[in-house]
Amino acid sequence: MQNMINDEDMMLRMHQIHKRFGSLEVLKGIDMEVRRGEVLAVIGPSGSGKSTMLRCLNRLETIDQGSIEIKGEFLAVQNEQGYSEYASAAKCRELLSCMGMVFQQFNLFPHMTVLQNLLEAPVQVKKRSRDEVLPEAEELLRKVGLFDKRDAYPSRLSGGQQQRVAIARALAMQPDIMLFDEPTSALDPELTGEVLKTMRELAAEHMTMVVVTHEMAFAREAAQRVIFMADGSIVEEGEPVEFFQHPKEERTQAFLQNML
């Protein structure tokens, strides 16, 4: 944070985000930055607001106060009355198109085959020709190790396989930033490994990633920075080695003790 950051490398910036559900304030002034190629792990107890924070980044939730910048342009900016105003619909669509998202529940389209899941958005949204997208989609399926499942329907796949398809589907839109919302939380323990492996490979290719997770091993080994959230605030952040070995805050220490 203290370092001077080249603005061109700034991918995401949240400034003093507040979010309320009715009278319940779930985000209480979040400041966060993500640089190009950085893998940021967000950890914390359930109900700490970490998923909500992630969902605010791509406007699945709207913020009440504060501002969000994506690659140096405002998605939302705080006006003089103190409330957030979003950019025009067209601008929002343009800014959000650089982000892909992977959900806890995969959310594959069940009525489409694996391959159709990958082709859908590039063909329908970007209006690219199917022939042009097909080799890219097949390459992505090879990358996540599911080329042989390309004509299967999602219900035929294991949870781990579905999540790898979901990652490939998001990548098919060629995003600059990937958001992961507890990608392994719905999986049986023996299936989390294959998903985390895919994510590690992505990190090794310098994809910018924000990962909300309960997988401490992943946060420690694959992330460049870890944020610990509790009660809608960021309690502590730091580099993984320092963060996990010498947590400064009491709440962090208590949380990590429970997890390990």
């Binding site: 699945l60 998202m101 959900f103 959310n107 958005a121 949204v125």
Partner: peptide
């Protein structure tokens, strides 16, 4: 139809 389907479509830009 679960809300996740809308959210997946939205994050894909649909």
């Amino acid at each position: 139809i679960p809300r996740g389907q809308y959210e997946a479509a939205k994050t894909l830009g649909m």
